[in-house]
Amino acid sequence: MKISGAHVISVPQERAYALLQDPAVLGRSMPGCDALEKIGENEYHMKMKMVLASMNGLFDGKVRITDANPFSSFRLIVEGAGKIGFMRGNGLLTLAPLENGTNVQYEGSVEVGGTIAAVGQRLLDTTSRMLIKRFFDKLSTEIAASGDKAGSALPA
């Protein structure tokens, strides 16, 4: 299934770019995920606990960053598998400066397999969007907590 959308985050583009690739920040922002563990260049091990309605499942997988085009775009690939099936998100994130922050546009696909694919297709679109929204909401909280704000001097 294709997904696309955009979110605004309140830090300048270069900072946004760095935050979106920071495994600590990513790990804390991804719903159901605690931490990412580096296993290679731009490649991290991920454990995710997905809780949605009465459904819950543990996913074990990887987060990868590819096609990095500093400060303007990169590809984020999230893959996980567990007892209830597997899922794969692949999105090209494109960053553009705004007056008060950065517009992050994403375009990609979400695929699921196994039992969740059998019963989840009617909900895949709406729940994917919710999870992406939660990711950006959490990211904003992270940003607020770290004291970053739009236009602040960049710590390199």
Binding site: N56, A118, V119
Partner: peptide, 14 residues
């Protein structure tokens, strides 16, 4: 009605 089918498919395992 929502929970038990999910439990039967083992998508829910409270």
């Amino acid at each position: 009605m929502s929970l038990i089918p999910m439990m039967k498919l083992r998508l829910a395992a409270p």
